[in-house]
């Protein structure tokens, strides 16, 4: 007779334990859900009201001179000024063959020859691998033929310097093109002296 209340007590204890476990199981996902609810704000996706412009170096496609025009801009000479009658002369293909003009040109860009990029029929234009003529300002297309990875990164905003706004609804952005940073004849980024180091007292020793 005495076992009946004890069994009831055990049953009750088991029921309570099950209830606690169930409650814990139920509240746990709800809690994490309510957390993510609190963070689930509507993403701000700005309208592209302002342009992304690509900066091309001034005077591209001309030979720089020491002269400046009335506005102070450097005066360049069009390539065709000299390269007009190439017809009967053999085409120079390597910088080492240059003996009279462009002799200060250093070339370190793989195994390319001059006419890989320059159009021998019209020196004021460049030439893609498929023969298509392009203007000097469109040089990015030419670089992209080989440097696809860099071009893809550039297209997605992950290569090349820029200034302006991340939020194009508030202002525009100006980006560098390839030749703003890379000299096409020796495209490796040059060594530079860095800006001065911090003069904190901890920095006078090796390590930081």
């Amino acid at each position: 007779m005495t076992s009946f209340p004890r069994r009831r007590a055990i049953n009750l204890a088991v029921a309570i334990a099950v209830a606690i476990v169930l409650a814990a199981l139920l509240t746990f996902p709800f809690r994490s859900l309510s957390n993510s609810d609190a963070q689930a704000v509507v993403p701000y996706i700005p309208e592209r009201l302002h342009p992304v412009t690509i900066k091309t170096p001034a005077g591209i496609g001309t030979l720089r001179t020491e002269q400046r025009d009335i506005h102070g801009n450097p005066v360049g000479v069009a390539c065709s000024t000299c390269h007009a009658d190439s017809g009967d002369r053999p085409l120079i293909e390597r910088s080492a063959e240059l003996t009279v003009f462009h002799t200060d040109l250093k070339f370190a860009h793989g195994q390319l020859s001059c006419s890989s990029c320059h159009n021998p029929d019209d020196r004021d234009l460049l030439r893609l691998a498929d023969g298509q003529k392009i203007a000097f300002v469109d040089t990015m297309q030419l670089c992209a033929q080989c440097h696809g990875t860099q071009h893809r990164s550039y297209e997605n905003g992950a290569h090349g310097g820029m200034v302006g706004y991340w939020d194009l609804s508030k202002g525009g952005r100006e980006r560098n093109d390839c030749v703003a940073c890379h000299d096409p004849h020796q495209p490796a980024y040059p060594q530079v002296m860095p800006a001065p180091p911090p003069r904190d007292r901890f920095f006078n020793v090796k390590g930081h």
Binding site: V41, P43, Y44, I45, P46, N156, G157, A158, H159, G160, G161, M162, V163, G164, Y165, W166, D167, S169, K170, G171, R173, N176, C181, Y189
Partner: peptide, 30 residues
């Protein structure tokens, strides 16, 4: 809405900044 000063100063374009919640942002692409 502007880019950080360190990003604008970077001559190699090593820095990418943006809104992580915007699926079309540069930072998300990276």
């Amino acid at each position: 809405g502007k880019l950080p000063a360190c990003l604008e100063a970077c001559p190699t374009g090593a820095r990418v900044f943006g809104n992580l919640l915007d699926p079309k942002s540069e930072i998300r692409w990276v």
